[in-house]
Design a protein around this nucleic acid. Structure first.
Lengths: 337, 337
DNA sequence: TTGTATGCGTTATCAT
DNA sequence: ATGATAACGCATACAA
């Protein structure tokens, strides 16, 4: 079914049908109704490809996700969900591109086939080839997370450094003097994954400020790794009385490891961190943590992207969020020796 | 950048460029190289919209997911990941459509705007308006899960009835005579969600066959609901010594509830079910369960869909998977009273 | 082996 | 207020 057929049946020209639909020029109520009747009857919808070709825009956003074979974390999933939601709200569709390596077919299709009006990139590395590629292609984009040199790009991120620092200060205030950081996986750190590096920065700075002794560990992004990590921590650093973490996926394992070691939280050991609310609330006892506002971040990313598409030459904007730390039940005064 | 510009710079006609790219007719090696040089230099890629308009296909698949605001379950996420992966492997892009209600804008855009060559539908209800809509629109589609009347549609599903029945038989073999089913949420049951209904069927049939006494409970799809459910179960039915479940998201809560009640698994209580491997292995002790093969299902769904797109009039095909039950550590002989 | 011409379905410009 | 027509970028039937 195409617009010509509608026009024929309604006894008008194609342009009249087009204008009746868009309202961009006045159409007699009478003919408008006749056209609408035909459209309803035949269930006509403009062909998206033809419209995209003519208008030069696709009404579609690209969302670049980590390679699908890797299990997405809850946080990543939260971004996907909120981006899709926000896009749907603006009557935009979302094209998914699983892209990991630097020269990815799907990514290239999206970028250079002009299949989308703009792109949202997540899981940004400090040095990220995809960012460079998008800049070169001149395609509007917004990143969730930011690169080492963030001034030229449009992004939204959580201030991991500040949040982890706040957690450290909170624990120091409670009297803890020996604190561990349970970071993301060694692979992510090696790959220059921003949140892992910034968490470490914030940790180091706060620890130095307060004159604490500390140790920083990497930990795989899953429950078994969390359990192992706690075992190692208890063994190698028995003096440690508190930990901060940005590794939400390890939390169930951390909990299990502490339970198995007979460590009571927060009586014997305190823990705080940054995690999606879901993970924090499922922790036992519930985790004192800054809740990553995935919904707000995804929504903001779409908003920023739409602005950028509308005005590609406007100065870039950033959004660095510092959500409050929700005081729950996993932190308490340092145990008396 | 368009094909005409490439042709101009290479000193050939547009069709020659097109044929050089598609290989659908011979092109002298010399001119082919000259064209390729220009293409490489300008980083040209055919415009997807123009190609879609001309060819009548978009090289894009639609994936209809539950409304993004609801948190996707691990299993749903597994489907999304494997579908995206399989599609990427076939050089196809995936357009996401979050669709819950019956008249959804995003869904309608995808279906009637011809934005995709075919659709994969998940979270199927026994009666599903979206299935009817797709049939009416004549758009090829495959469902993950199947409706009450599955003969006219192409689908891939797990045989929940058989799997749950097998779990019941396994427990009966171990001497259990009083068994509970922990089903999905009451809302899903009320909405006619297939897996919930088929689990109940299989449960009822096996229980009847073995002459067991039983009770069937619904339980919200999250940890707290699982905990509550176990409390209720222990209180109302203290005689129950085993449970089967299809509610993976409730597993952490079920585990916590059993621990809090001082119930040792499998010494005092056995539990088995159907769950993504991840959930089964994170359960303590590890859960005896049929592992839902999300990867295989997503891949198969894409395969079926591609077949269907290639031959829309071929007879429909189904895939009803019955993965083996992995014997882990959560089931044991009935406790002696 | 290569070039020319046409049409895919829309929207926008120009003319009426 | 409406109609005719061009143009978007590509693929292909047809011509040379």
């Amino acid at each position: 079914m195409n617009i010509g057929e509608i026009a024929r049946r309604a006894g008008v020209s194609r342009s009249t049908v087009s204008y009746a639909l868009s309202g961009k020029r006045p159409v007699t109520e009478e003919t408008r109704r006749r056209i609408q009747a035909v459209i309803d009857e035949l269930d006509y919808r403009p062909n998206a490809a033809a419209r995209a070709l003519k208008e030069g825009r696709t009404r579609t956003l690209g969302l670049v996700i980590p390679p699908a074979s890797l299990r997405l974390t809850d946080m990543q999933l939260g971004f996907v969900a909120s981006v899709v939601e926000a896009a749907a709200h603006a009557d935009l569709d979302v094209l998914l591109s699983p892209s990991g390596g630097d020269h990815d077919r799907s990514f290239e299709r999206v970028v250079s086939g002009r299949r989308v009006d703009g792109v949202i990139l997540m899981e940004i590395r400090l040095e990220d080839a995809r960012v460079a590629r998008l800049q070169q292609a001149g395609l509007p984009f917004v990143t969730i997370g930011h690169t080492a040199n963030p001034h030229g790009t449009c992004w939204v991120d959580v201030d991991y450094a500040t949040l982890i620092a706040r957690c450290v200060h909170h624990l120091a205030d409670l009297g803890h003097r020996d604190i561990a950081l349970i970071n993301r996986s060694a692979e992510l750190v090696a790959a220059g994954y921003g949140p892992a590096h910034r968490a470490l920065e914030g940790f180091a700075e706060a620890v130095a400020q307060r004159g604490l002794t500390s140790t920083a560990l990497t930990c795989g992004d899953d429950a078994p790794a969390g359990e192992t990590c706690i075992e190692r921590l208890r063994e190698d650093h028995p003096e440690i009385t508190a930990a901060v973490t940005v590794n939400e996926a390890a939390l169930p394992g951390i909990q299990r490891g502490l339970e198995r070691a007979g460590v009571s939280v927060p009586r014997d050991f305190s823990i705080a961190g940054v995690a999606a609310r879901h993970w924090a609330e499922d922790f036992r006892p519930q985790l004192t943590a800054a809740d990553v506002p995935t919904l707000e971040m995804g929504t903001s990313a779409v908003d920023l992207l739409l602005e950028r598409i509308a005005a590609p030459d406007a100065p870039v904007r950033h959004l660095l969020l510092t959500p409050p730390i929700s005081l729950r039940a996993s932190t308490g005064p340092v145990p008396i020796r």
